[in-house]
Amino acid sequence: MSAWPQRRRPALALAALLLALALALPVLATPAAAAELFPQVPAAAPGTECLAPPGEMRRTHMDRLTHRRTEAVRAGIRQPAESLTRCLSCHAVTDTHGQVVTAEDPRHFCRECHDFAAVTVDCFSCHASRPEDAPR
């Protein structure tokens, strides 16, 4: 039998968690650790705005894209402003030579987080992963 009364246990666990967090915080706060914990999302074209606030885009972009593609292909409803090609023109990433990278490159906008979260998407086996007018 435990020495602690049953109903105290959650409170105790919470206290332990908080303590652990407090100890870990200074370590987490260093830039090096943060870079490993969160992916470095490449910045979008300056002066533009996404379809929704970034936090929401992070959570809902897959559903938006799936919905969009179903509407576009099956019903013929075009929404150029929300199309995949449009995402890629705002979110084009250039390499050191000023060339827009393809999805082959880990720096591609759609890859930074996915590689980090071990998500693989097959979209770019068909879809062009950079705007057609991009220098190549």
């Binding site: 013929g76 075009r78 086996s125 068909c126 879809h127 062009a128 057609e132």
Partner: peptide, 28 residues
């Protein structure tokens, strides 16, 4: 087989079937 450099308006890739779609992207 794998393809690269597809046209943005005609995505196509390995393992799928395709055909003339009357250029839906142009019709639209």
């Amino acid at each position: 087989q794998d393809l690269t450099d597809q046209k943005p308006h005609n995505p196509r890739g390995k393992g799928c079937v395709e055909s003339c779609n009357l250029c839906v992207h142009r019709i639209d």
